[in-house]
Write a protein that binds this DNA or RNA. Structure first.
Lengths: 339, 339
DNA sequence: CTGTTAGCGCTTTCAA
DNA sequence: TTGAAAGCGCTAACAG
C-alpha cells in the first residue's frame, strides 16, 4: 500500500498525501479529511524505509548494554524504551556480555542499521574503541552508568554513594568491613565504587581490607563462603551490585552466619526484587529507569539541535540508601584493624 | 558514503559493487579485491534503508513482550537476540505491561516500522486483536509462552508441569496445597497452570483450594501473609511464577513461618536468580532462552520459505523440576480435605 | 492550497 | 564478467 494508491483514491497528488501525514495544517480541512479517509480505507501505513532514505533520519536509537540478566539494565531499558516511544523513536538493543569486542561489533551493527543515535553502557569509556569511532563519525551518543569527563554521561556518584554506605556501617559499629566486587577491570563503575570504599574506610580511620574480586561467570558463592569462614572474617560486606549481595547472603547462610545478626550486607543498584527478599536487601538504589529516560531525552534533544552531545551535558542523578533488613549493628567485641 | 563513491573509487559500476556485497562469487577475484579495498578505505557501509526499500525486506524482527522486569522475559529476549543476530536480523522489542491495548499499539508500531516478522507473548491468543491483524495481513509471526491450536507457538506444557509439581508435593505428604497466581484473565499461561493444579489435586483425590489470585501491580505480600495466618492454612504453595514464589516466601517469614519447615513453596519459570536465594527456589524451570531462540528460528525459516507460519509448526519444549530448598516434607498431623 | 518532479542509495533485470 | 538504467516509496523544492 503506497502513497500513490492513497493519492489516486483521494483524487489528489502524492505531495498532498505526504503533507497530510507530515504537516497537517498545510492542507485544507476538506482535503485532509478526504485523504485521511482514503488512507484509512486502504489501511495505509507510510513506508519507514522510504521515509528514512529520503530524510536521512531513521527515528531509531541504538542501545548497547552489558546484559539483560541483571535486572538493573532491564529496568534501565524500560526507561529508555518509554522515553524513546514518547519521543517518536524505536530502539534496537544489543547486549555485549561485558565483552569489549562485542561492544565494537554492536556499534558497528547499529551504525550499519542506520540508527540516528546511541545510548550505551560500556566497559570503560577511557579505553573504548567503540566510543572513539562514534566520536570520529560525529554520531550522537550518550553513556549511561559510565562516568568520564570527556563523554556525555548520565549516572550517579558511585564513589560518594559507597563512601556513604561505609560511613553508615561504621556508625553501626562495624570495623571489619570488606568490599565484594566483580572484575574491576571490566567496569569503570566497579572501580569508582571501590574507590568509594577506600575513601569511606580512610575517613573512618579504618584499614581497608583487600578487595574481594569475584569473576562474573561463576556463581561466586563458594568463594565468598570461604572468605566468611576465616577467623577474622568481616562483620559487614559492601557489594558492588545487588546480585553479588544476594550471593553473599547465600554464602553467609552456608557458612552458618545469620544476616544481619552475624553479618551485615549492603548491595548496590536497588533492583526491585531486593525488596521482596528476606531479609529485604539494604542497598544503594540508583534510579535506573531515570538514567535511561534522561539519557534518551538528552540524545533526542541533541539530535533535534542537529549535533552530537557535549560532555558537559552530563547528568549526575541522585542515589538513595534503601534501608532494608540485611544490615544491622555490629556484634560486640571486635575492634577491627585501625588504619 | 554511498555505493556510487565506492564504484567511482574502484573504477567499476555500482552494479559491480552491489554484487561484491551480495553475490561475491558472481564477480571476478580481481574486481572483488579492488572493490573491497575501495570500500574499506572509504569506510563504506551499505545503507540499510535503501536496501530495504529496494528488496522489501528489512531484516528486522519485532518482539512483543509483557515486561522485562520479570527476568523470565529478559532471559527469553536474550535468546531471541542471539538467534536473531545469528540469522542476520536485528530486533525491535516493545513491552506491553500486560495491557491489551498496548499489545495492539505495539503491533501497529512494529508494522509501521517495516519489520519482516514478529515474535510475541500475548495476554491471550484467543481474544487478541493484534493476532487477528497479523493473520489478516499475512505477516509471519510466532507466539512464545502462549499456547493455542490456531497459532504457531513455542512453549512448555504448563498444565502437565503444574500437575506434576502437585504430585511431588503430595508425595511429600502435603494435603493442603494452594495455588497462588496473578490475574487469571490477564494470561493464558496462568489459566493453563491453574488447570494443572486442579488436575493434580483431582488425581491425588484432594479438594482444590480456592485460587489465591493476586493483582500484578501491588506487591501481594500483605495479601499472602493474611492467607498464611489462617487457622487451616496451606502447608504448600504452588506459585504461577517465581516472582510470586519469592513474595510468598517473604509473606511466610512475615507470618512467622519457616520455609520449608512450616511451608513448602514451588515457583514456576526457573529464573537464574532463584538458585542464589536462601532457601534456593524449588521451581518448574522452563527453557526461556530456548523458547526465544526456537521462536526466532521458526520465524526465519518460514520467512525464507516466503510465507507465514503454520499452527502445526508449534513446538512444545521440555520443562524440568528444579529441586531447590523451598520444598520439604509436610509437617505431621494435618489430614487436609479429601475431595 | 495543491501539483510536478528530482532524487535519497540500493538491487536487479537486461544487454553487451 | 560487467554495465546501464529503472524504480522501490517517500519528501521537499519549486511552480502555479
Amino acid at each position: 500500500m503506497s502513497i500513490q494508491a492513497v493519492a489516486a483514491k483521494a483524487g489528489v497528488s502524492v505531495a498532498t498525501v505526504s503533507r497530510v501525514f507530515n504537516f497537517p495544517d498545510k492542507v485544507s480541512g476538506a482535503t485532509r479529511d478526504l485523504v485521511e479517509r482514503a488512507a484509512r480505507e486502504l489501511n495505509y501505513l507510510p513506508n519507514a524505509s522510504a521515509r528514512t532514505l529520503r530524510t536521512q533520519r531513521s527515528r531509531v536509537l541504538g542501545v548497547v548494554l552489558p546484559t539483560l540478566l541483571n535486572p538493573t539494565f532491564a529496568e534501565c531499558l524500560q526507561g529508555i524504551a518509554q522515553a524513546a516511544v514518547a519521543g517518536g523513536y524505536a530502539i534496537i538493543p544489543v547486549t555485549t556480555g561485558y565483552k569489549l569486542d562485542e561492544e565494537e561489533r554492536a556499534v558497528h551493527m547499529l551504525l550499519a542499521g542506520n540508527v540516528d543515535g546511541l545510548i550505551l553502557v560500556v566497559s570503560n569509556p577511557s579505553t573504548s574503541k567503540a566510543l572513539e569511532r562514534l566520536r570520529a563519525q560525529r554520531v550522537p551518543y550518550v553513556l549511561a552508568y559510565n562516568r568520564h569527563p570527556a563523554h556525555p554521561c548520565v549516572t550517579v556518584d558511585n564513589e560518594a554513594a559507597v563512601a556513604d554506605a561505609v560511613a553508615r556501617l561504621v556508625l553501626l559499629g562495624h570495623r571489619r568491613i570488606a568490599m565484594v566486587s566483580g572484575t574491576l577491570a571490566a567496569s569503570d563503575r566497579a572501580q569508582q565504587r571501590y574507590r568509594g570504599y577506600q575513601k569511606g574506610m580512610a575517613d573512618a580511620g579504618l584499614k581497608p581490607q583487600p578487595l574481594v574480586e569475584v569473576p562474573f561467570v561463576e556463581s561466586a558463592v563458594d568463594r565468598l563462603a570461604r572468605l566468611l569462614q576465616l577467623r577474622h572474617r568481616p562483620s559487614a560486606l559492601v557489594c558492588s551490585n545487588d546480585l553479588l549481595a544476594i550471593r553473599s547472603i547465600r554464602a553467609a547462610h552456608r557458612s552458618g552466619l545469620a544476616v544481619p545478626a552475624d553479618l551485615s550486607v549492603i548491595g548496590f543498584d536497588g533492583i526491585a526484587l531486593g525488596e521482596d527478599l528476606t531479609p529485604a536487601l539494604s542497598t544503594i538504589a540508583q534510579p535506573s529507569s531515570d538514567i535511561g529516560r534522561h539519557g534518551v531525552e538528552l540524545l533526542i534533544q541533541a539530535m533535534a539541535g542537529g549535533g552530537a552531545l557535549d560532555a558537559d551535558a552530563s547528568l549526575l542523578l541522585p542515589h538513595v540508601f534503601r534501608d532494608g533488613e540485611s544490615c544491622a549493628a555490629a556484634p560486640d567485641g571486635d575492634p577491627g584493624d585501625i588504619a
